[in-house]
Computed example of a mutant assay.
Amino acid sequence: MKSTPAIATAALLLLGLAACGGTDAAETAEAPPAKSIILITPNPVGTNSFLQLGVKGAEAAAKELGASFKLYESKDPTSIAQNVDAAVRAKPTVIVGISFSFDDVFTTVPKANPGQQFLQVDSCAKEQAPNLACVSFKEHEAAYLAGVEAGLLSKSGQIGVVAALDTPFIHRWIEPFFAGATSVKPAAQGTPLYVGGSNPFSDPARAKSQAQTLTGRGVDLIAAAASGGNPGVFEAVAASGGKAFGVDVNQCALSPGNVVDNVLKHVDVAEHAAIKEIFDGRTGGVKVYGLAEGGVGVNALGDDLASSGCTVAASPDVVAKVKQTRDDIFAGKITVADPLQS
């Protein structure tokens, strides 16, 4: 009983401290949420240059905007769905999904979560919700330019493509490449082969095997469109005396003297810009980046061609033709057919 006054005094002291310096639940709830970005990839990033660009763009945006960044790497459709669900529960400022692998899940999840902003890079769900922004590219325009180079440089007139999968989207790297070649060498013949298997975007061994099949048929120029599998293609052409084209980024340094040029796609730049727009409140919609918008290209068009390590730098006549073709596309004199629209 004698301790009661002490207890009462302590209680009053605690109440006083709370009144002076405490923060109640209402104040906490009203605090603005922290800015954050979650990027979900369809496969482990690893050596996949396309996914590396996705990470680069999101990280750059996070740094500029003062936001946190988290990467969720998937391995199959099931883990993609699981990662999207986990991201929704985390409630970031924006959830970014990269590639056509998100077409299905982004058809339903954004509609079910209208208060959450989503960004899909390199594709767009067919039924686009108002809170889903999309960024896509005209890869076929850059592939056409690479094809022009291949047609001018091929000695056998046999060119090929080693692509990850036989899908309408990936055909943007195939038919336009062959069309560019035949525009300057009508007799040129093109053959595509596909990596396939359980890991089509990161399987150098299977990509190399398909490239060896092509070189065995007399193909002397191969466009590598197998992402992480591209080094396998470079190994095959190096052994056969042929040449290759890279994809997404400058891959000429991966196999010095064996890579002519690259079908470039500036995923990081477009993704960075789209995230900034979402943070500024400009959400939804679709933006398409082609040659005119600086979203795609080839190293032959760059000011740094001389230091690129690409063998096309040694063929100024080919570079001049590529630049003329680019200008003709700008002027509407050449229209590159989009396999996705056919």
Rank of each mutant, 00 (worst) to 15 (best):
E139N: 12
A18Q: 12
P33H: 01
V259K: 03
A143K: 08
R89N: 15
A164W: 07
K35C: 03
A125G: 13
A150V: 02
G302A: 15
K321P: 15
G22Q: 14
S202M: 15
L214V: 01
K56C: 05
A223C: 12
G297R: 04
L214W: 07
P44K: 06
P130H: 02
V249F: 13
F169L: 09
D338C: 09
G46Y: 04
P204W: 01
T9D: 14
A60E: 03
D327Y: 09
F106S: 02
K138D: 03
L12P: 11
N250C: 12
P42W: 13
G197F: 03
D304F: 07
H266E: 14
E149K: 06
G115C: 10
G147C: 04
T41H: 06
L165D: 13
Q212H: 08
P33T: 00
P42N: 02
D327K: 13
A211S: 09
V286M: 08
V94I: 05
A90Q: 14
H171G: 01
A163K: 05
G147Q: 00
P110F: 05
A19T: 11
L39A: 05
D304R: 14
T108L: 03
A164E: 09
D328N: 12
L14N: 04
L119H: 00
L53I: 14
F106N: 09
A181D: 03
E293W: 00
A90L: 15
T213S: 05
C20Q: 10
A142T: 09
